[in-house]
Structure formats: C-alpha cells, structure tokens
C-alpha cells in the first residue's frame, strides 16, 4: 500500500505573524518557513504505519514553486521514500488542492491520503474533506488514533462532543489532529540521505489546473486588541467586581 502525504510550506508556528502596513497580506519576508505542523503529524503517522509493515511506500507531496522543495526534503529526511512537487506559482484554493490530491491518489493508486486537518496559515480546514468528496472515498478527519487492519482503518476522531470512532474501507482520506502523535526529529545523516531520494516535479496543469471560482482576497488587518482591565487587591474585591457586573 502507498500512502500519499500532503505537506504545506507555511510560516513556522513559533513566528509571531504581523500584518503588512499596507494591508496586502502578512509579512513573510525573512520569516522562518516550515512544514505545517499538522502535516508533519500526518507524515509521522504514515511513517509509523509503514514501519509497522502495513504500508510499502510513503510519498510526500507539496504544491508551489521551488521553495517547497525545502519542505519536501525535510519530509524525505523524516523518512518518506519519495517526493512530488506540484509546480505552480499561484496561491491555490482548497478545491484546487483537493483536485490535485484526488488526481495523484488515482495516478499512484494510493491506499491512504493522509493530510493535516488544516494549515496554520489560511486556517481553512477543507482540503481533506474536499478530497474525500471528489474522490468518492471515506473521510476521517481530525484523527487522534489510526489503526490499520488489512483493507480497513479504524479512526478515532476528536469531535466537540468527545471521541468518535469510524471504521472505513481503504482507500480513504484521513486528516490528523494535533494529538495523533509526536513527530520525530530529523537526524543529520538522514538529511544527507534525503538528498539522494527521488523528487519529481509535476506541472499543476497536468493534474487538472484550477478548480472552481476563487474568492477574491482583499485587505488584511490586525485583530482588535483587548485592553488591560482593572487589578483588584483580594478575593472579596474580585467577587464584588463580578457581582457589580452582574456576572455571578
């Protein structure tokens, strides 16, 4: 079985994001870029499935210009077998990304498409769902546990009401939640080895090009700040303040 893992190049989660002064976007010049954390978890899960003898090959996929090769090499260093760069200079909407994953899943005959539940830049949380819909295959989003058993997967999902369990036939789309696993650290020899692993470049048009009318993105703004309130001296003053405001 092959597992296809999507990894998006995104602003590192430790970076404090700032809106550009002209409102045209957020500052990305000179900002550290990394693999989207949820995608890193998806890749870790794929590698664990392979290491447990339940998959033969892990393929990492990223969409973008040549900069994304950096994140693909990180994925290869973590242990993926090969990489595919879907080449485009455009920023894509989730529907187009989903179409790309569907096309690649079919081309590769993937048993699982494993994605992060959302990217921490646009926070869309849509690609996995859309891929499952277009592909007509099971959709197990927000996974906190994945058990592969032959041709099925049992997936525990983190939903608002608790933990939901689904059994799905493979092939299927699974998206990772934060607590699915803790990704491994990359070791230096693995980085050297990753340089020799195959990385194919496929033009976006070969996989269907753009899908759906894209919403137009306008001005970016910083959120309205919360201001500092009052400090009280003791519990009695705190309780009095709460009562004054009619909160308790």
């Amino acid at each position: 079985m092959k597992i296809l893992v999507g990894i998006k190049r995104a602003v590192d989660y430790n970076v404090r994001v700032r809106v550009k002064s002209d409102g045209s976007g957020v500052e990305t010049d000179g900002v550290k870029m990394s693999v989207n954390p949820f995608d890193e978890i998806a890749l870790e899960e794929a590698l664990r499935i392979k290491e447990a003898g339940k998959a033969d090959e892990v393929i990492v996929v990223s969409i973008g210009n040549n900069d994304v090769q950096q994140q693909l090499r990180t994925g290869l260093a973590m242990g993926a077998d090969r990489a595919i760069q879907v080449e485009t200079g455009d920023t894509l909407q989730p529907l187009t990304v989903a179409r790309v994953f569907k096309a690649l899943a079919e081309r590769e005959g993937a048993g699982i498409v494993l994605l992060g539940k959302q990217a921490i830049d646009d926070d869309c949380n849509q690609v996995g769902q859309m891929t499952a819909a277009l592909w007509g295959r099971p959709q197990a989003t927000f996974a906190s546990k994945v058990v592969i058993d032959g041709t099925t997967a049992t997936v525990t999902r983190e939903v608002d009401g608790g933990l939901e369990t689904l059994e799905v036939d493979l092939p299927a789309v699974i998206t990772s939640d934060l607590r699915l696993n803790e990704p491994r650290f990359v070791k230096l020899p693995d980085i050297m080895k990753a340089k020799r692993k195959p990385l194919d470049v496929v033009p976006l048009d070969e996989l269907g090009g753009h899908a759906g009318a894209a919403p137009a993105t306008g001005r970016h703004a910083a959120p309205a700040p919360r201001s500092r309130g009052v400090m009280v001296g003791d519990t009695a003053a705190l309780v009095a303040e709460l009562k004054n405001r009619g909160l308790v």
Binding site: L95, A132, D160
Partner: peptide, 18 residues
C-alpha cells in the same frame, strides 16, 4: 467539528470553494 467536516464536503460536490 461537525460543520467543518460536512460543509467543505458539500461545497466540493457543488464545485465551489468554501
């Protein structure tokens, strides 16, 4: 989690972005 699971699925079937 329910809305985020279902709505993008429906949007993709409708061929629209969400």
């Amino acid at each position: 989690t329910y809305g985020k699971d279902v709505l993008p699925h429906a949007a993709a079937l409708l061929g629209v972005n969400a």
